[in-house]
Computed example of a mutant assay.
Amino acid sequence: MASPTPYAPVGFAVLTGVNGNVRRVADTLHLAADPVELTAALVDTPSVSGDEALIADLVERSLKEQTALEVTRSGNAVLARTNLGRPSRVVLAGHLDTVPINDNLPSRLEDGVLHGCGTVDMKGGDAVMLHLAATVTDPRHDLTFVFYDCEEVEAVRNGLGRIERELPEWLDGDLAIVCEPSNGTIEAGCQGTMRVDVRTEGVRAHTARGWMGVNAIHAIGDALRRLEAYEPRQVEIDGCLYREGLQAVKIGGGVAGNVVPDEAVLTVNHRFAPDRTPEQAEQHLREVFAGYEVTVTDSSPGALPGLAAPTTRELVEAAGGTPVAKLGWTDVARFAALGMPAVNFGPGDPTLAHTRQENVPVNQIHQCVEVLRRFLSHDTTRH
């Protein structure tokens, strides 16, 4: 086994701060370089949500060196696009932020695998996008590249929302590819998600005289039995199988060790197939928990796979293999809400996201580059 070493691309200074953290900084990235080197350089530029200015500056400077691209900035999001008059436009999107570092910087290359915070979620995908922005010189479609901030925190801070409000024309297209980790497989659409509070009310009393009260925690028991007996739906859409789910994720109640509780709250998360609207999902939950007070606390629509759209079919053909359903929620739903088909496609195993063990095989980064190059470019021979 090779000894772990930082993967240091040529031209990057390795700096050690007073706290021992390692950063690589550069005036620009060499976007035509090996995308694995780009991934390592991005990983070694820490960008925890809310602190993306350094990496956004780096990406902006690098993209501005590509004279064929129009580049603009929105907060700590960087956007670039071609304006070649092609009959269709493809939007490629990736977030620049990561979850907090967990003693997994700097990056290291070991036995063909790149390790480090963000290698999976999702600086490998960002590197793929940056490399294509520099090397696809004769695209079949006009291209838009969106590198945005604050995806890993609450939805109201997500940079895509700000871009939609302030620069909506930059999100127009015939297909959106969100380069989130998908193990190099096209994941079509995504599930919707909804959280509800199922609440019971009772009457307080001293536990020594429990018959004088009504125990709200006892009353939640039937809701739990309904969940235990629930059989989730499976739905096939465009050949992709979506599995719904209904899970209790939190339960609360109680006043004191000698008081019959007068309130209990059961929090339930529903993952629903994209053929349901949020309104239909809410109605379904109210039927499941009929007789209880149900309050929606969070809701995001899903996204249909859109595999019948001509541009999506071209991508599927370039990728080979069979698309699968995205079992989870991603920002493809934001693009679907704008009226365009959207898929997830990027390097890395999504089950490693947010873990200390994040790593991505370098061959998967190269694979994603070549698939997208075949799809995007007239000249598929250039490497």
Rank of each mutant, 00 (worst) to 15 (best):
2 A>I: 07
3 S>W: 12
7 Y>L: 15
7 Y>D: 09
11 G>V: 07
11 G>N: 07
15 L>A: 11
17 G>N: 12
17 G>W: 12
20 G>F: 07
21 N>F: 13
25 V>F: 13
28 T>I: 12
29 L>G: 03
34 D>F: 04
34 D>K: 12
35 P>M: 05
36 V>M: 06
37 E>I: 02
39 T>E: 11
43 V>Q: 11
52 E>I: 12
56 A>H: 10
64 K>F: 03
77 A>Y: 05
78 V>R: 07
82 T>C: 03
89 R>L: 10
94 G>W: 04
96 L>E: 06
98 T>I: 07
99 V>S: 08
100 P>I: 05
102 N>Y: 10
105 L>C: 09
108 R>W: 14
110 E>N: 07
111 D>Q: 13
112 G>S: 06
113 V>F: 08
116 G>Y: 14
116 G>L: 06
126 D>T: 13
128 V>Q: 09
129 M>S: 04
135 T>D: 10
136 V>L: 13
138 D>L: 14
150 C>T: 11
157 R>K: 10
159 G>K: 12
161 G>C: 02
165 R>G: 06
168 P>I: 08
169 E>R: 15
171 L>E: 09
171 L>D: 07
173 G>N: 01
178 V>P: 01
179 C>E: 05
182 S>M: 06
183 N>S: 14
186 I>D: 11
187 E>Q: 14
187 E>Y: 11
187 E>G: 11
189 G>L: 05
192 G>T: 02
192 G>I: 00
193 T>L: 03
193 T>F: 03
194 M>P: 00
197 D>A: 14
206 H>V: 08
206 H>L: 06
213 G>Q: 06
216 A>N: 03
218 H>V: 05
219 A>V: 02
221 G>L: 05
230 Y>E: 03
237 I>S: 02
244 E>F: 02
245 G>K: 04
247 Q>T: 11
251 I>Q: 09
254 G>K: 13
260 V>I: 14
267 T>M: 00
275 D>H: 12
277 T>D: 06
277 T>S: 15
278 P>G: 00
280 Q>D: 06
286 R>L: 00
286 R>I: 00
286 R>Y: 02
288 V>Y: 02
289 F>V: 00
291 G>E: 07
296 V>D: 00
302 G>D: 01
303 A>V: 08
306 G>Q: 10
310 P>C: 14
312 T>H: 04
313 R>Y: 09
314 E>P: 09
315 L>S: 10
315 L>E: 09
316 V>R: 09
321 G>A: 13
322 T>D: 12
325 A>N: 06
325 A>S: 03
327 L>T: 04
328 G>F: 04
330 T>D: 00
332 V>M: 01
333 A>E: 00
336 A>T: 02
337 A>Y: 00
343 V>P: 03
344 N>W: 06
345 F>V: 01
345 F>L: 12
351 T>F: 02
351 T>S: 15
351 T>V: 13
352 L>C: 09
352 L>I: 10
359 N>F: 13
360 V>A: 04
361 P>W: 08
364 Q>L: 13
371 V>Y: 12
377 S>C: 07
379 D>I: 11
382 R>P: 04
383 H>I: 10
